[in-house]
C-alpha cells in the first residue's frame, strides 16, 4: 500500500509540475505539455513498455547533436500513445536517429 501511494504521489506531482511549466511559467509549449503528460500516463498508469523507457534513458545519456535532439523531440511529441503501431514505429525512428548520432560522433 505504501509503495503504491508513493507511486501515485510521484505521478500526481509530476502531472501538476508539467501543467504548471506551461500554465504558470510558460517554459513548455502547449504541445510539449501534452506530449509529456501523455508520456507520463503511458509509463505510469498503463505500466507498459520498459523498452521505451530504456530508449529514453539512452537518449538522455547520449550527447546528441542539437539538430538530432530536436528531431527526436519532435518524433516523441508526435507519438500517439494509444496506438501500439505508432509507439513501435516512432521508437524505431528514435533508435535509428541515436545510431546515426553515434556514427557521427565516431567519425
Amino acid at each position: 500500500m505504501a509503495a503504491d501511494v508513493r507511486l501515485k504521489s510521484i505521478y500526481d506531482t509530476l502531472c501538476s509540475v508539467i501543467s504548471n511549466l506551461h500554465l504558470q511559467m510558460g517554459i513548455l509549449s502547449h504541445e510539449e505539455m501534452y506530449g509529456l503528460l501523455s508520456l507520463l500516463d503511458y509509463t505510469f498508469m498503463k505500466k507498459k513498455d520498459p523498452a521505451f523507457m530504456d530508449l529514453l534513458r539512452e537518449w538522455q545519456a547520449s550527447k546528441t547533436e542539437p539538430e538530432i535532439y530536436e528531431i527526436i523531440k519532435a518524433t516523441l511529441l508526435g507519438i500517439d500513445f494509444n496506438k501500439t503501431e505508432s509507439v513501435d514505429k516512432n521508437m524505431e525512428i528514435i533508435r535509428s536517429l541515436l545510431r546515426y548520432n553515434n556514427n557521427l560522433r565516431d567519425d
Binding site: V5, K8, S9, Y11, D12, T13, C15, S16, S19, N20, L23, Q24, H30, Y34, L37, S38, L40, D41, M45
Partner: peptide
C-alpha cells in the same frame, strides 16, 4: 489525472495555476 487535465484544457477550463493546485490536492486524497 493526465487525461482529466488534457480534457479540461481542451474545453478551456481548469486552466489557472490555482486550478492545477486544487486538482493536485484532490488527486492526493488517496
Amino acid at each position: 489525472y493526465v487525461e482529466l487535465i488534457k480534457e479540461a484544457h481542451g474545453l478551456g477550463i481548469l486552466t489557472s495555476t490555482r486550478d492545477i493546485e486544487d486538482l493536485k490536492y484532490i488527486a492526493q486524497h488517496y
